[in-house]
C-alpha cells in the first residue's frame, strides 16, 4: 500500500491545484454570488445559466473547447504569448484555468444560496447603523453566511480533486506539472498495476469521506440554537 515517489508527487500536485482553484473560486464567487442573490437585473438569469453550463456539459466537451482556446493558435494562447508567457495548454496554469471554470457552478450555487438565505433585517439594520455597502458585506453578510461559504469551498475543493475529463484533455500527464491523482490512477489501471491503483484510490476515497464529514458538521442542526 506504499505510494511511489511519482504518486506522492501526483497527490501533492492535486492538492496544490485544488487549493489554488478553491481560493480563486472564492474570490470570484463571493462577490458574484452576493450580486446574483440580491440583484433584480434581467441579465442575472442568463448569466447564471451560462455559468452553470459546466454542470451539465460532458467534461471532455468542456476540456476540448478549453484546449482549442489555450493552444498556441487559440484566443487564450495568443493572449498569453502576447503577454510574454507560454500558451497555457499542458501546463499547471492551464489546469487552474480549466478547473476554475469547471468547478465554478459547484461553488457559486451554494455561495449564492447562502447569501440569499440571509435574514434581510440584519443587513438592513446594519445599513441603518451607518454601515456602508462594502462594510455590510464584510462585517455582516460574510460572517453570517460563513458556514455556507465554507461548505462551498469544500465542495469546490473536492470537485477539483476528482476531476478527470477536463484535466485529461487540457493537461495530459506531465509528472509534476499536470499529472494529477485521477490521471495517475488511470495510468496505473492502463498498465494493469492494480495494487498501485488501489492504494491511490483508497487515499482519495478517505479524503473525500473526510471532506463530506466536514460539510455535514457545518450544516446547522435544528434545535441547537435558534439564529
Amino acid at each position: 500500500m506504499r505510494l511511489t515517489q511519482d504518486d506522492w508527487q501526483a497527490l501533492a500536485l492535486t492538492l496544490r491545484l485544488a487549493g489554488v482553484v478553491t481560493g480563486l473560486l472564492l474570490l470570484v464567487c463571493a462577490p458574484l454570488g452576493w450580486w446574483l442573490a440580491r440583484t433584480r437585473c434581467r441579465l442575472a438569469g442568463p448569466l447564471e445559466a451560462v455559468l452553470s453550463l459546466p454542470m451539465v456539459l460532458p467534461p471532455t466537451v468542456l476540456g476540448y473547447y478549453l484546449l482549442v482556446l489555450m493552444a498556441p493558435q487559440g484566443g487564450l494562447g495568443r493572449l498569453f504569448t502576447a503577454a510574454g508567457g507560454a500558451p497555457p495548454a499542458f501546463t499547471f496554469t492551464g489546469l487552474v484555468i480549466g478547473s476554475v471554470i469547471y468547478s465554478l457552478p459547484f461553488v457559486l450555487q451554494p455561495v449564492r444560496n447562502s447569501f440569499a438565505a440571509l435574514e434581510s433585517e440584519a443587513l438592513e439594520a446594519a445599513a441603518c447603523l451607518r454601515a456602508a455597502p462594502l462594510d455590510r458585506f464584510f462585517t455582516v453578510a460574510v460572517p453570517m453566511a460563513f458556514p455556507g461559504l465554507l461548505t462551498a469551498a469544500i465542495l469546490g475543493f473536492a470537485h477539483t480533486l476528482g476531476e478527470f475529463g477536463v484535466v485529461l484533455m487540457l493537461g495530459g500527464s506531465i509528472p509534476g506539472e499536470t499529472r494529477v491523482v485521477s490521471i495517475a490512477l488511470y495510468d496505473h489501471v492502463e498498465a494493469m498495476n492494480y495494487g498501485a491503483a488501489n492504494s491511490l484510490a483508497l487515499r482519495l476515497l478517505g479524503l473525500s469521506f473526510l471532506m463530506l464529514l466536514a460539510v455535514n458538521a457545518l450544516k446547522p442542526r435544528p434545535g441547537r440554537r435558534g439564529a
Binding site: 433585517e121 440584519a122 447603523l129 451607518r130
Partner: peptide, 20 residues
C-alpha cells in the same frame, strides 16, 4: 441619500440582531 448616510435609526419587527 442611501440609508447608511441618514441620521435615522430603525427598530424592526423582528430585531435583526447580528447572530455572529
Amino acid at each position: 441619500i442611501p440609508p447608511h448616510r441618514r441620521a435615522v435609526g430603525m427598530v424592526f419587527q423582528r430585531a435583526g440582531l447580528f447572530p455572529h
